[in-house]
C-alpha cells in the first residue's frame, strides 16, 4: 500500500485516496474534431518514469491535489495543492 502525503492532511494510507489519472490533460475545444476529442479523452502518456497525476483524498478532506510519482518505484516525488505552482523537482521532468 502506498503512503501518500495529502497537501492538506499529511501522510495517510492509500486506501483513503482515489487515483484520478494523468494531470494537465487539456480538454478539447467544443468545436474540435474527432481526433482532438479522442486525444483528450483517451490518449495518455502512460509514462514509465515520473508521471504527473491528480489524486483525491476521498475518505479524508475530499479535496483534489497534484502529484508527481515514479511509476517504476511507485514512490511519490511531490504532492501539492491545486492552484499552487509545482515544486522544483531539480530538473527532473515529467511526461
Amino acid at each position: 500500500m502506498l503512503l501518500i502525503t495529502c497537501p492538506w492532511c499529511g501522510p495517510r494510507p492509500e486506501i483513503e485516496f482515489a487515483a484520478r489519472g494523468e494531470a494537465h490533460v487539456a480538454r478539447a475545444a467544443p468545436d474540435a474534431d474527432g481526433e482532438a476529442i479522442a486525444a483528450a479523452l483517451y490518449l495518455r502518456s502512460n509514462t514509465r518514469g515520473l508521471l504527473a497525476e491528480r489524486w483525491r483524498h476521498v475518505y479524508g478532506c475530499g479535496r483534489y491535489f497534484n502529484a508527481v510519482r515514479h511509476t517504476v518505484t511507485d514512490k511519490f516525488v511531490a504532492t501539492w495543492r491545486v492552484g499552487e505552482s509545482r515544486p522544483d523537482l531539480g530538473g527532473e521532468g515529467t511526461r
Binding site: M1, L2, E14, I15, A18, A19, E22, R44, N46, T47, R48, L51, E53, R69, T71, V72, T73, D74
Partner: peptide
C-alpha cells in the same frame, strides 16, 4: 491497482 505502474507488484490490500 488504481494507478499506472510498471513495478510488477501491487498493493497488499
Amino acid at each position: 491497482d488504481q494507478y499506472v505502474s510498471y513495478s510488477q507488484t501491487g498493493g497488499m490490500q
